[in-house]
Design a binder for these strands. Structure first.
Length: 748
DNA sequence: TACATCCTTCTTTTT
DNA sequence: GAAGGATGTA
């Protein structure tokens, strides 16, 4: 096909990619395997719509999951199609919803000047509610309630229908949960605050209850594109449907093997049943992997093929085999980290890799510590993505709470956060008085004024409270008078926040001040960016700014330009690629994670997570584990991840220096490391038994046979007699906790 | 009301 | 092994 009328060439694409780009009409599912050029296809497709099909840019909506992905997509579209591509609506789900809600949410009787609560604020609110309800945290934890409410909202279920939720249907605490959900909603609405999930839920309701609004978007958006479709939740799924039922020009892109957000409500069946939803859908599979060398890809493919809930498919390696995947089993997490540093140094020295070529992945953030220590010892520059987030720091949260409260006088949560920060002598007692002076309609300030007027608090407290109110009022007036960066300084100064930190003059306070300085650069960056328009009012600008920082993710703030090794969780790694990847902590209870071993579906998600990690690698892949690891401050013995047994021997081998064998893997150089994966010499494990039961008949290390799991080794025994709980490690089935009298174990 | 100290729980993963 | 909550003391 000649394409001289295009400013880019379709010849850069392989046949299926070309097919995906040019099939513009009707529902289309693009199954894009790891490394198959997905972003390329999406951006070419948008450019093709603009240039070939002459679609006006504002008629295209592309949604992704992170701002980073959206930003990159926009850049690449513009580089293909020129500035014509600029007005294309490329956004995250949440940002798109905010934009829609800011415009129309008043139709749902919600103020359009809402603020967005971060996860901390909403958890705090739930805590308060449970306390008011006299619910014991131990019986029903705020985290569980928060999770369930989130789950409900993602499933488009309000408090009145909560009993429909599978998770709680028969729970005897259902009534409490429903009540908590009701109260939570009441507080949020009274505060003109949305939580993350509300952004989706209310957009859905807006479209459902106001077909005219929905129609206006439907008429505008002729082409809709959804990236990472495998990670959409029900709410997102329905919103997409609402916008695309009429024109049906819906293109979804994803890979069921890379669905890793089930715990957050993502529904993998959205992608698996797309063809049932749209029987006339065209399906294009991109199954050529351009990223990884053969051994890496084959190992990863073999691993993922063990999952049941997936579309049968096989990625084809375009690149040559390269080197085998290397497994390393270390003594402890420090040893593991040192192995990683040593190999980084070695590869830099001998093969010319530079530090930015390396990534170290782990299952949980807590693992980063030992790796950081080792890298620091070796003077290897590194950057951590995620972890303790900038926006989660105490002083940053305080400042944001001030900004939110100035903007939204109904925001109780923010008010409570700032009222005594810095200390103003307003403690729990006064706060209780203020709260009891409020009815659902009063703002915190109204209630505070009433409290002062009623004279129920002592003079000094009253005066202090009044001074605080005056400061806020004055700041509110300043919003329109000074620029946003100056305004932030005013807030810090006028509220006494910064002066209080300065007079503290400790290491800690100096760090906090530095962080607040850093926040000012965030403001500056915002003011320089294109989202910030000159024409809008100060209030409007502050509002846009707060929206933006509420919706940033860890990965968004990662500048991959630096020359550092990158450390991040497996979840954050999705969508990225590195020449050399270390996947650390390949242990039972870590990957797969301890909490994911209940349901098979959860285990499959862990396997996908491992798959995502492996497929990030272009040239070299190391899988490392530690035989004992310190978690929660104490050492625990660890066992090789069951995922090792899913890996093919032809593509994976043990590093020649590995001190411990991993069942099923051959040591480099051809020495058989373990007897066919049948047993692990338990003597090689360092044991620190927590307690030794006098009557114990099964000391750790005893070989036992189980009718289902085969031969295994006893790790520990808890209790005695028939009720004893025995933990056994089975090379075939992983770690199992068994009750002695039912387990039917045969001692060998 | 504020601050110190002890204790508990926590860690999956995050828009 | 840290951070937040509960408890006790000034």
């Amino acid at each position: 096909m000649r394409s001289t009328d295009l400013s880019f060439s379709l010849d850069d694409l392989n046949p299926s990619q070309k097919d995906a780009v040019t099939s513009t009409e009707g529902p289309l599912l693009i199954l894009a395997g790891a490394g198959s050029g997905k972003t390329r296809v999406i951006t070419y497709r948008i450019a093709y719509l603009l240039e070939k099909r002459k679609v006006p840019p504002y008629a295209i909506l592309a949604v992704t999951f992170t701002n980073k992905a959206a930003g990159e997509m926009r850049e690449r579209v513009i580089s293909l199609a020129g500035k014509r591509g600029r007005p294309v609506w490329i956004s995250t789900f949440h940002s798109a919803c905010v934009r829609i809600l800011r415009q129309h949410v008043e139709k749902l009787n919600v103020s359009r000047h809402f603020t967005i609560a971060d996860a901390n604020s909403s958890l705090k609110l739930i805590k308060d509610i449970l306390k008011e309800m006299n619910v014991d945290e131990k019986v029903l934890s705020s985290r569980r309630v928060s999770w369930l409410i989130s789950r409900a909202k993602n499933s488009l279920v309000g408090p009145e229908n909560m009993s429909e939720l599978e998770e709680v249907k028969r729970d005897h605490l259902l009534e409490r949960m429903v009540q908590a959900y009701h109260m939570y909603e009441e507080r949020l609405r009274g505060s003109h605050v949305f939580d993350f999930d509300d952004l989706l839920f209310f957009t859905y309701r807006l479209f459902e209850e106001h077909p005219d609004v929905r129609k206006s978007y439907e008429d505008l958006l002729h082409y809709i594109l959804v990236d990472e479709y495998q990670d959409t939740n029900h709410a997102q799924y329905q919103i997409i449907r609402q916008l695309s039922t009429h024109r049906r020009n819906l293109c979804v892109v994803g890979d069921d093997d890379q669905s890793i957000y089930r715990w957050r409500g993502a529904d993998i069946t959205n992608i698996l049943s797309f063809e049932q939803d749209y029987p006339d859908a065209k399906v294009v599979s991109l199954m050529e992997n351009y990223r990884s060398t053969g051994h890496i890809l084959k190992a990863a493919s073999c691993l993922i093929s063990k999952n049941m809930g997936r579309k049968e498919k096989e990625l084809v390696a375009v690149r040559p085999d390269g080197l085998k995947v290397l497994a390393y089993s270390s003594f402890d997490e420090r040893d593991e980290a040192d192995f990683i540093s040593a190999n980084i140094l070695d590869l830099m020295r001998r093969e010319g890799f530079s530090s930015k070529d390396f990534a170290v992945f782990y299952r949980i953030n807590a693992q980063s510590r030992s790796i950081e220590d080792s890298l620091r010892r070796q003077n290897i520059p590194y950057a951590i993505v995620g972890g303790v987030r900038f926006y989660d720091r105490l002083e940053i949260r305080d400042l944001i709470a001030y900004l939110r409260f100035i903007l939204n006088p109904s925001d109780w949560t923010s008010f409570e956060r700032i009222i005594n920060s810095p200390g103003r002598g307003i403690g729990k007692v006064t706060m209780d008085r203020i709260r009891s002076a409020a009815d659902p309609e009063t703002t915190p300030e109204g209630a505070a004024k009433r409290t002062v007027a009623a004279g129920t608090v002592n003079k000094k407290t009253g005066a202090s409270l009044q001074a605080f109110l005056n400061t806020i009022t004055a700041l509110r007036e300043k919003t329109e008078l000074v620029s946003l960066d100056e305004f932030v300084v005013c807030v810090l100064e006028d509220t006494g926040y910064l002066p209080a930190l300065q007079s503290e003059n400790t290491d800690e306070s100096r760090t906090r001040i530095e962080n607040l300085q850093e926040f000012r650069t965030v403001v500056d960056d915002f003011l320089k960016s294109e989202i910030s328009e000159e024409s809008v009012s100060g209030t409007e600008k502050l509002s846009t700014f707060l929206d933006q920082i509420s919706l940033v993710s860890d990965i968004d703030s990662w500048a991959d330009k630096g020359s550092t090794v990158t450390l991040m969780t497996l979840h954050t790694a999705k969508g990225l690629e590195f020449p050399v990847v270390f996947l650390s902590g390949m242990e039972e209870d870590l990957l797969p994670h301890y909490h994911s071993q209940g349901e098979p579906a959860e285990l499959e998600e862990e396997r996908r997570l491992c798959y995502v990690g492996m497929t990030r690698s272009k040239e070299r892949l190391f899988l490392t584990m530690a035989r004992r690891r310190r978690l929660f401050g104490k050492y625990d013995n660890a066992f090789p991840s069951r995922f090792f047994t899913d890996l093919p021997e032809e593509n994976v081998e043990m590093h020649q220096d590995t001190p411990f064998p991993i069942p099923g893997l051959i040591r480099k150089g051809g020495i058989q490391a373990s007897a066919g994966g049948e047993t692990i010499p338990i003597s090689e494990f360092h044991y620190e038994p927590e307690h030794v039961d006098g009557e114990e008949t099964l000391p750790p290390g005893t070989q036992v046979r189980h009718p289902m799991f085969g031969v295994g080794q006893v790790m520990s025994v808890d209790g005695s007699g028939g009720e004893a709980r025995i933990t056994v490690y089975f090379p075939k089935g992983g770690k199992k906790r068994l009750i002695a009298k039912y387990a039917n174990l045969q001692v060998l």
